[in-house]
Simulated assay, not measured.
Amino acid sequence: MTVKKNLPLSKDEPLLARLGSQITARRKILKVRAQVCAEVAGISRVTLHRIEKGEPTVSIGAYLQVCEALGLYLTLLPGVEQAADTDFPDPEMPHIRIKDYPQLKALSWQLKDDEYLTDAEAKSIYERNKRFLDLKHLEEHERILMQRLIDTRGMERILV
């Protein structure tokens, strides 16, 4: 019997590393210090650090404790990229990874590629920099994201 190995959803970043990045982003958005987050989750600061790095040796229970402490709710969607194109459970939670959207990446050059943004942050970047958008080279998944922001956030109509 052959067992298929589950491949990461992103070619360049394993699933746990992405989850760790989202946990870190959420903690920082909430302005919660790492030590306080660890205490509320009932884990050590070292374990929290390992979770935020996406280490696979940390138990799923510890990941879930941190998610609960930060008000994050895991979904069984295929990936963050697809979730960003559907009705995401909490648009205030960072879930739009900059490097997944080429125009967003170009407009937010000062931010790290692997950072996650909330809908409001992405909307703000697109609106402030709309004069620099290259609509001719806009990829379909980014066009869908922008249309969703227009529909749900009242973003000024920038797609032609």
Rank of each mutant, 00 (worst) to 15 (best):
V58P: 14
L104I: 12
D85M: 07
E68N: 13
V3I: 14
E52W: 07
Y101L: 04
A41E: 08
A17T: 09
T75F: 02
P94Y: 06
R50F: 06
L16F: 05
G42I: 00
R128L: 09
Q65P: 01
G20E: 09
Y126E: 13
T152S: 05
E92G: 10
L48F: 06
V66E: 00
A62G: 07
R26M: 14
V3Q: 13
R45A: 12
R157D: 11
D119Y: 05
Y101N: 11
R45N: 15
L117G: 09
Q35N: 05
F88G: 00
L159N: 13
L145G: 07
Q110G: 04
R128K: 15
T152W: 10
Y126C: 02
K99P: 01
I98Y: 07
I51M: 13
S124P: 02
K31G: 04
R26N: 00
K99R: 12
L135D: 08
I96H: 13
A38G: 06
L16P: 08
L76M: 09
I125C: 07
A34M: 13
K28H: 15
K28V: 05
H141G: 00
K5Q: 09
D151P: 13
P56G: 08
A84W: 01
G154K: 04
L138C: 04
D12Y: 06
D113Y: 12
E81K: 06
F88E: 06
P14G: 12
G61I: 02
K53V: 00
R33N: 11
A38I: 02
D100F: 10
D90T: 02
P78K: 03
T2G: 04
C67M: 15
N129Y: 07
Q65I: 00
I125M: 09
D134W: 06
A25I: 02
D113N: 11
L48E: 08
L149V: 08
L104D: 12
M93V: 14
R50Y: 15
L9C: 07
A84C: 11
L9Q: 07
G61M: 05
L72H: 08
N6D: 15
I43C: 07
P14C: 11
A38D: 03
D90H: 11
H141L: 03
A25L: 02
A62L: 03
H137S: 12
L19H: 05
R143K: 15
Q110N: 13
R157I: 13
M1W: 08
E92I: 01
K130L: 08
E127M: 09
E52C: 01
F132C: 05
